[in-house]
């Protein structure tokens, strides 16, 4: 018997964890570099605005009361459009998940609609739904509809069939099975689809406000872009980013509440 050699450890890595403060440090470092660069003239005014000027512009926007004048219509558009798109999307997705004929009829249609850039249809929506709020709601609703449908029917497909058979074996009604077994079972998939749908809704907000919007975050950004007003452009973009973070946090909270049975 020779001397035992230690077995070397080889099971490390491949398990990333998120460290809380790193994200904030990256943000602050980037902004600091931009501030120093623009202050010293190493970054030209044409390339990037001064972060401090952007903050200043934001404060002015807030103090002038224009912030809410822009945010309120945008949030309304997001809310109404996304609510329409998501609720119709979930309903259609569940129907596709449950019925053979609807599945055969609608899956190819959804696949055909999915890749259409919804922005391309904006002029058409203006004719159909009017240049005011209707076309904006429609664009956001349409944009959130397709990813929701796809996520929902995928999630319904993944609901454990034995649970459905169990429901049937206890004589539960069709509606009870859908409400108490299919929907909760599909909820994790629906919610992760919702993350994507709502991010798309925010992207489409700018597109929706291209036509005929005097106020709105998207209109504000477009105007800043056409005036080459970089401070305002960055303020608008930052508001959209915050909106995205907010939506993501809200879905996170909903997930923690609705899916607390999972963790």
């Amino acid at each position: 018997m020779s001397e035992p050699r230690p077995v070397s450890f080889r099971g490390g890595g491949f398990a990333p964890k998120s460290v809380r403060w790193i994200g904030a440090v990256v943000f602050i470092a980037l902004i600091a570099v931009a501030e120093i660069g623009t202050q010293t003239g190493w970054i030209s005014a044409l390339t990037l605005p001064k972060p401090s000027d952007v903050l200043d512009t934001f404060v002015q926007l807030y103090q002038s009361g224009l912030l809410w004048k822009h945010l309120t219509p945008s949030l309304t558009r997001l809310l109404v459009g996304a609510l329409l798109g998501v609720s119709v999307g979930i309903s259609v997705g569940v129907l596709i998940g449950l019925f053979s004929y609807i599945r055969s009829g609608l899956v190819p249609l959804v696949a055909a609609i999915f890749p259409i850039p919804k922005i391309a249809l904006l002029p058409l929506f203006v004719i159909w739904f009017g240049i005011d709020e209707g076309s904006k709601y429609a664009l956001i609703a349409f944009g959130t509809f397709t990813p929701t449908v796809v996520a929902t029917y995928g999630a319904v497909d993944n609901v454990d069939r034995t649970l459905i058979r169990m429901g049937q074996s206890f004589g539960l009604s069709w509606w009870s099975i859908v409400r108490k077994i299919v929907l909760p079972g599909a909820m994790p998939g629906i919610l992760s689809g919702l993350r994507i749908s709502l991010a798309i809704a925010i992207i489409l907000l700018v597109a929706a406000e291209m036509l005929g919007a005097e106020y709105g975050i998207g209109a504000y950004i477009l105007e800043a872009g056409s005036l080459y007003d970089l401070e305002r452009l960055f303020v608008g973009v930052a508001i959209l980013s915050l909106l995205g973070i907010g939506v993501s946090a809200a879905i996170g909270a909903i997930e923690r509440y609705l899916l607390r049975w999972r963790n």
């Binding site: 240049i131 291209m210 036509l211 477009l222």
Partner: peptide, 9 residues
């Protein structure tokens, strides 16, 4: 004023 981005629109 109604901003519509493009002359075509």
């Amino acid at each position: 004023y109604k901003p519509l981005q493009k002359v075509g629109a």
